[in-house]
Design a protein around this nucleic acid. Structure first.
Length: 304
DNA sequence: ATACTATGTTAAT
DNA sequence: TTAACCTAGTATT
């Protein structure tokens, strides 16, 4: 259930704890025996993310590409060296965890017996990572992995690992791809070929923050509005990478006073708030089904 | 115990 | 447009 910010956090985690390490790769569940055998014993060179796609580059030109889909998650554990380098931490966050399902932290490098269907297990000298429930998990050549990247739209979080020039070109590319089509903007934001990494929460929240009506055709979005939307995505999703949660509301709206982060029920403007009063104008938040996903918005605030 | 839901995508219809 | 994927947290019985 993760959006792009979670995958970027995972890429950073793999870079921090496994890059430069030789990894034992297995598939306790069995469904990935073939791919695991290809990677077993190789050095992990680097980890990266583009939108919701995670790429682990191994020596010899083999790339493990993972998409968590709806239920996928990575779980990590290890000794003090591992924990010291790790940036995940408990409690469990969407798509990433450092605590076993029984709630007992497991110190030490030795991985626990596989719990449930572990598609892939990576083990280094200091720690381990288990993958469950992913919709995609394949070993590819660098060219195949690049072909996947090439199909995707620009990633608002690309600036995290790349140059400012890349971010600027990402903005222009986003505006081009968004305003080229008459499809409603609510659909375009979910289209990974228009912009990579936005999911159902950021879609709803970014549209609210921009005061944009979901039904507005992409072609009718003023260029300046589209640029501002991109800039807000960079900002909001960057914050998501730091927090490990999607928090889009202004801190002034948090009732619990000065706190670094709000309670979960104050983190969003409209997502999962159907029927509840809009935090800005009080109008009940609307809910509609769009292409099998739930769309939340305020009919009064989002009029442009 | 059982049902329902979810921050996603693809393939079949 | 719908089903499938097949995990895990939360709500309901």
């Amino acid at each position: 259930m993760p959006e792009g910010h979670s995958i970027h956090r995972l890429a950073r985690q793999f870079s921090d704890v496994f890059a430069g390490e030789r990894l034992a790769v297995s598939s306790p569940q069995g469904r990935f025996h073939e791919g695991a055998a290809l990677l077993d014993g190789r050095l992990l060179l680097r980890a990266s993310a583009h939108g919701k796609q995670l790429f682990l580059d191994f020596e010899g030109g083999a790339v493990l590409r993972v998409h968590l889909g709806l239920y996928g998650a990575w779980e990590f554990g290890g000794d003090e060296t591992f924990t010291g380098a790790s940036s995940i931490g408990a409690p469990r966050r969407v798509g990433e965890s450092e605590v076993a399902a029984d709630g007992v932290a497991r110190p030490g490098a030795a991985p626990p017996p596989p719990r449930g269907a572990v598609r892939v297990r990576l083990v280094s000298a200091h720690g381990w990572a288990d993958l469950r429930g992913a919709s995609t998990c394949t070993v590819e050549t660098e060219a195949e992995a690049q072909a996947v990247r090439d199909r995707l739209g620009p990633d608002p979080l690309a600036g995290h690992a790349a140059s400012a020039a890349d971010s600027a070109s990402g903005a222009e590319e986003f505006v081009r791809r968004l305003t080229r089509r008459r499809t409603p903007i609510s659909r375009l934001l979910m289209d990974q070929e228009v912009v990579a990494g936005i999911g159902n929460v950021y879609r709803a929240e970014l549209l609210f923050r921009a005061r944009l009506a979901p039904a507005l055709p992409g072609s009718a979005v003023p260029g300046e509005k589209a640029l501002a939307l991109w800039a807000d995505a960079v900002d909001a999703m960057g914050q998501g990478v730091r927090d490990g949660r999607i928090i889009t509301t202004h801190p002034a709206l948090w009732p619990e006073g000065p706190a670094r982060l709000p309670q979960p029920d104050h983190a969003h403007y409209v997502y999962r708030r159907q029927g509840q009063p809009c935090r800005i104008c009080g109008t009940p938040v609307s809910l509609a089904d769009e292409a099998g996903r739930k769309l939340y918005w305020c009919t009064a605030c989002q009029r442009i």
